[in-house]
Design a protein around this nucleic acid. Structure first.
Lengths: 316, 316
DNA sequence: TTTATTTATACTCATTTTGAGCATAATTGT
DNA sequence: ACAATTATGCTCAAAATGAGTATAAATAAA
């Protein structure tokens, strides 16, 4: 039996939290600025086992201290531990392992402070107004150039970026980010010394440490999860119109949906009940709905099976 | 900006791997026995940042050393860090964080060594022959008793165990295990000093450390993943009959499926192509299929959308 | 005050998918 | 030859889905 003994290596675990909300037609996350850094960061801090009985307790503390919010539900995303992807070349004397968490917030209980648009950091992920130009204008050509020397990655690129007949899968956010990093197309890659020259053109705003990687994980997870669990409602206010719910959905998955069918989907799902009130805005007033909590026992805990339209028939 | 400095706490990270395979009508995992311990364990070892550039490299090394297998694809499951759930009351001088990984193996390239039946450790998860007796005979009554003092957990129990009209969701493997642990119904809870008396009746075979928790995570993840990614084929041999594929599927999700519809589902999915060969066994010979790799670009990377039968219509 | 614009909501309709079976085919064991 | 067993093909009704058309109820503009 192996004794758990790694010698005298000092390991440091950092816990970072992506706090997301939907606000003003934007998917936003809680961002912090540091005086000595142009890139922003997430709230984060070290896991201190003597003070934090669990990592969740630790992350809650850091978030409370740094952005003054008491988080409700949080979800662990991933633990990153690859050397050299944290703080670049700088002292890795203490090896840093990074654990990412996801938290959802409602637009109301935002608290002051800075919220950043998520798609500002991932412009290629927002397809609400159609395929983003940056893909064909910048990303794909650059990846192609990179693939010449790295043809073993061709299959990954094809899958992640939906090329050569493959479909764009909106859940592959992290894989796309990783490929851009490996190909040296984003600033973090240059910062980490992975590529000599900085990228010709900045692809999305960079962030400190591995925080953009964590955001990519968060977005991918959220996009995936909303299809099988009712997480969307954690982003919604107490009462909301179906249109608002749809807009939040579209924000998250990054594509637009058919209005009437979305309504049918939601109403049938049983997740929602009318309040009788209506909201007044531009056009005809809309009914206000509220989330119907788990009191109705017969409903499976499914999500909204949104879909991007009928698939083109497969070839014979 | 918070400096990443946790004082001088010594953190130890253990990496454990659940290696699963389908064999002999059983879902099995690679288990190791130690002389001084009756409970079995997974292959595991400490993460040593100076020797392992990534955690994956580390885990591969431990697996190679301990069970003599070179793993193909692995997937990170979860990072557990709660105090007192590892090695019980014993020295937590070095705080242990535990990272679980999942790997899939084919029955052939098994290598020697011990494989254990997964459902031996989770008897309540195998519904292939209908609802397991242990649920109504032991688990639910015991949970009910526990709920008297812990009524805040009632909603969790209802959801996880599909009570009061809620449906059994086969993916909630971890949550069920956690509840059994919290309720003190399994041996690990007694071992960790969470409950004075050991459980009246042993619910599934216990394991060392948090390895059963990791197995629960692995099973839940696999059950979930097979619905949206073609992972099942990583458990299958090179060529296989549709029946074999179905049996593996049933093994994983723990329920039985309608044969003809399963065939229709698989054939339509495009994941599989006939080889022309047939297998001879008891009845009529079955066509042998092989997995069709990602060369067909037009196919989404979906999984097999198996389902447990039509839902009973919801009440009005 | 009409009219255009905007948004919400209701319905329709053709397809496709799904759950459930029945029917038939091709083997082996007796 | 016949029973048992497994594979495979096919049908059928119900439900879900994608894509509209039509109508309703507001505000903004003319």
């Amino acid at each position: 039996m192996p004794m758990s003994d790694s010698g005298n290596i000092d390991i440091l675990i950092d816990i970072s939290t992506a706090i997301l909300r939907a606000h003003n037609g934007e998917l936003q996350f809680r961002a912090l600025e540091d005086a000595d850094e142009s890139a922003k960061r997430l709230p984060f801090g070290p896991f201190m086992p003597d003070r934090h009985r669990t990592m969740e307790i630790g992350l809650r503390q850091w978030v409370r201290e740094q952005v003054g919010v008491d988080l409700a539900h949080v979800e662990q995303l991933y633990t990153f531990a690859d050397q050299g992807r944290y703080r670049g070349d700088e002292s890795d004397a203490r090896h840093v392992v990074s654990v990412g968490y996801l938290a959802l917030a409602r637009a109301e209980d935002a608290g002051g402070g800075a919220w950043d648009s998520l798609y500002l950091h991932f412009p290629w992920e927002d397809w609400r107004d159609g395929r983003p130009d940056v893909l064909d204008a910048t990303i794909l050509p650059a990846l192609d150039k990179w693939l010449v020397e790295n043809d073993e990655a061709a299959a990954r690129v094809r899958l992640a970026f939906g090329r050569a007949g493959a479909q764009w899968d909106e859940e592959f956010v992290l894989e796309r980010y990783e490929l851009l990093y490996e190909a040296g197309l984003i600033e973090e890659a240059a910062r980490d010394g992975r590529v000599k020259a900085p990228p010709q053109k900045s692809l999305g705003a960079p962030m400190q440490l591995d925080h953009r990687r964590i955001l990519a994980t968060a977005l991918g997870r959220l996009r995936s999860k909303l299809k099988y669990r009712p997480v969307l409602f954690d982003l919604m206010p107490d009462r909301f119109t179906l249109r608002a719910l749809q807009q939040t959905t579209e924000l998250v998955i990054g594509t637009s949906l058919h209005k009437q069918n979305f309504r049918r989907l939601v109403e049938k799902s049983g997740f929602v009940e009318a309040t009788g009130e209506t909201s007044r805005a531009r056009g005809r007033p809309a009914e206000l709905f509220r989330f119907r909590h788990g009191n109705r026992a017969d409903r499976p805990l499914a999500g909204l099976r949104v879909s991007g339209g009928r698939k083109t028939g497969r070839s014979p």
